[in-house]
Write a protein that binds this DNA or RNA. Structure first.
Lengths: 144, 144
DNA sequence: ATTGATAATACGATATTCGTATAATTTAAG
DNA sequence: CTTAAATTATACGAATATCGTATTATCAAT
């Protein structure tokens, strides 16, 4: 049976809403063990993806006030996860990079994601897995 | 070229970490317009999925303290999103259900997810879309 | 050189989360 | 049947987080 496009989309939406919820809980659990709050974790992941980014970049991406990100940065610096640097090219800004401890922490989160993804693939047979991964990557690449 | 299973999984993980981050920001934006915080939104979505569930069910699922969930429930009731009921079968518990306003709000979030999913399918051709949806559903069903 | 714009932070007000103690109800034991 | 123990949710206060406003430092432009 072939579902209509609209029906397909609806089902896909439900599935992804669940995936997201699942991942979020996974993340919250991991965060707890590092005593980091949700925002700090998101910031850490973003900085991992954008080394040397400005504080305001993170704030904009995570949709929080600059002051909130400043506090988050304080916490992450205090815990030795990231470093603040004043670039000579523009000394108003603060460039953020992960320390080794920060990288290790991110690796821990990634491991959690990794396990969750592994569980996702479980019900598929090898050919299906290959298809699913291929299509997912095609989508991810398109997102920039 | 066929990637190894381990490599596949690694790439899938990266892709899903991004998807989750994207969805989370989408959600945060929608939440802001309803002036609901992240926890309250997650609670709303869970109650939509489990009508009549107990407060402690939500707390356990979202990995927060019962008192925190109680506060969240207060807020959602105050905003007319959900209703508390004392079931006759066990009057210690509180059964939570969405009001019409709550359902409308959830529908709004779902619309956001819907749009995001729609964008995801865009780079795929019709046959690929069908495959991707089929495999995603197979995974989702397996998750209970 | 001065004015205006940009980037981050200090500080205080409000809101959130959580631990402890408490109240209400159910279950189990005597 | 009565009492003790367990379960479920909440009240309250302490610690923390978020955000708006004001401030400082730097850069850009006239």
């Amino acid at each position: 049976m072939i579902a209509s496009s609209a029906e397909q989309l609806k089902q896909l939406t439900l599935a992804f809403e669940r995936f997201t919820r699942r991942f979020k809980v996974t993340e919250a659990t991991a965060a707890m063990s590092n005593s980091l709050n949700a925002l700090d974790v998101q910031a850490l992941l973003f900085i991992d993806d954008h080394p040397g980014c400005k504080l305001s970049d993170v704030a904009r991406h995570l949709q929080v006030a600059p002051t909130t990100m400043s506090s988050s940065t304080d916490r992450l610096v205090r815990r030795g996860m990231i470093e603040r640097q004043r670039p000579e090219t523009n000394r108003r800004t603060v460039a953020l990079t992960l320390t080794q401890a920060g990288k290790d922490t991110v690796a821990g989160y990634m491991e959690g994601y990794h396990d969750a993804c592994s569980a996702m693939l479980e019900p598929l047979d090898p050919a299906e897995r290959a298809d699913f991964v291929r299509l997912t990557l095609k989508i991810a690449q398109h997102e920039t």
